[in-house]
């Protein structure tokens, strides 16, 4: 067994600004519309494509109140070609736009990790906006269970 290293909490590599939005009360029925709006506001209307971005999240949440999610984006991170920002959307949450990470070429790599709260089973979406305006997206379903009877 490896002893757990306790070290000072550092912001994940490359993330210079972290904006975590609160959970305003809302109606789940409005979720799709809210997702579309948040997506449009972030991308400026560019159509997201798959590739270059990898979202890592558990298939089933151990605790819906604090679900670890990570994203990494393949990029040379040069002045001409870098990741400008990455946004996490939680499709089924009252306010889907959960967090946005901003990057610069000096970030070195475009990697970010945070924990989010998921009220119920839903898709988590990570969207990367590149410096040239291209947009990449990855989606993963995270299941939030009542409590298991497995074994």
């Amino acid at each position: 067994m490896i002893l757990t290293r306790r070290r000072a909490l550092a912001l994940s590599a490359g993330a210079t600004t972290l904006a975590v939005l609160g959970f305003a009360p809302g109606r789940p029925q409005a979720a799709t519309e809210a997702v579309d709006q948040a997506l449009k506001a972030f991308t400026g209307g560019a159509a997201p494509v798959s590739g270059r971005i990898v979202l890592d999240a558990p298939e089933i949440a151990e605790n819906g109140n604090t679900v670890p999610v990570s994203v990494s984006v393949e990029s040379p991170m040069t002045a001409d070609d870098h990741v400008a920002a990455v946004m996490f959307l939680a499709e089924g949450n009252p306010t889907p736009a959960v967090a946005t990470f901003h990057f610069t070429p000096l970030s070195g790599t475009a990697v970010a990790t945070t924990r989010i709260r998921l009220a119920r089973t839903q898709n988590v979406i990570a969207i990367a906006k590149m410096s040239n305006g291209a947009v990449f997206m990855d989606t993963k379903q995270v299941k939030v269970t009542i409590g298991g009877c497995g074994g």
């Binding site: 757990t4 151990e62 269970t145």
Partner: peptide, 23 residues
């Protein structure tokens, strides 16, 4: 077992997290 803290009482071993973690 990837879902030990979900199928069994995670509060008994709260400092450990599991998951398939394919990567």
């Amino acid at each position: 077992f990837p879902y030990t803290p979900i199928a069994n009482p995670g509060w008994m071993f709260p400092t450990w997290s599991f998951g398939i973690r394919e990567a």
